[in-house]
């Protein structure tokens, strides 16, 4: 036991050599330099994250707006077809009335009217639109 105490005293007397004076500065300056570098990287990453977030929100907003607009368009084409049909029919009637008033090229007028009536029976919206285009072209030519 006494020997162990003696060894302990000997071990306690052993001490490390002091560090050179520039050692402390070297270690700390490198550590702070790395800390600054990391801060810059973190700052850049935060900005990038923020920009990505903003872009993501914008994409979501635009997507919603575009989807709504598409839905409205589709509704106008599909569900709201009656409204469009009424409008087209009104146009057709006006153009047809104008055509009746034109005296020359009666054959064409008659064909157009026949065609309009045939298409109207089948109640195809696209056909109405085609007729309107044909009639408009014809009216312009006259």
């Amino acid at each position: 036991m006494r020997d162990l105490d003696k060894i302990q005293i000997l071990l306690e007397r052993l001490s490390p050599k002091p560090l050179p004076p520039e050692f402390r500065e070297k270690i700390l300056s490198t550590a702070y330099q790395k800390q600054r570098n990391i801060q810059v990287i973190i700052h850049v990453l935060q900005k990038a994250l923020f920009i990505c977030g903003v872009l993501g929100v914008m994409a979501l907003v635009f997507d919603t707006v575009i989807t709504n607009s598409e839905n409205k368009h589709l509704a106008a084409m599909m569900d709201g077809s009656q409204t469009s049909e009424v409008l087209i029919e009104k146009d057709l009637q006006e153009i047809a009335a104008e055509l009746f008033e034109i005296e020359y090229d009666k054959n064409l007028n008659q064909w157009l009217i026949r065609h309009y009536k045939t298409e109207k029976k089948s109640a195809k919206l696209e056909s109405y639109q085609n007729i309107i285009e044909i009639l408009k072209e014809q009216t312009n030519e006259k």
């Binding site: 490390p16 002091p18 560090l19 050692f23 402390r24 070297k26 270690i27 700390l28 490198t30 550590a31 702070y32 790395k34 800390q35 990391i38």
Partner: peptide
């Protein structure tokens, strides 16, 4: 700092390696 360097020197058997590791320790802490 001095104790750390001494401990690392004995653990790694090299003052140069101990300096590298001590540097890394402080970088990690920072």
């Amino acid at each position: 700092g001095e104790k750390l360097f001494n401990y690392l020197t004995i653990k790694l058997c090299s003052p140069l390696d101990a300096e590298d590791v001590l540097q890394e320790v402080f970088c990690r802490l920072a």
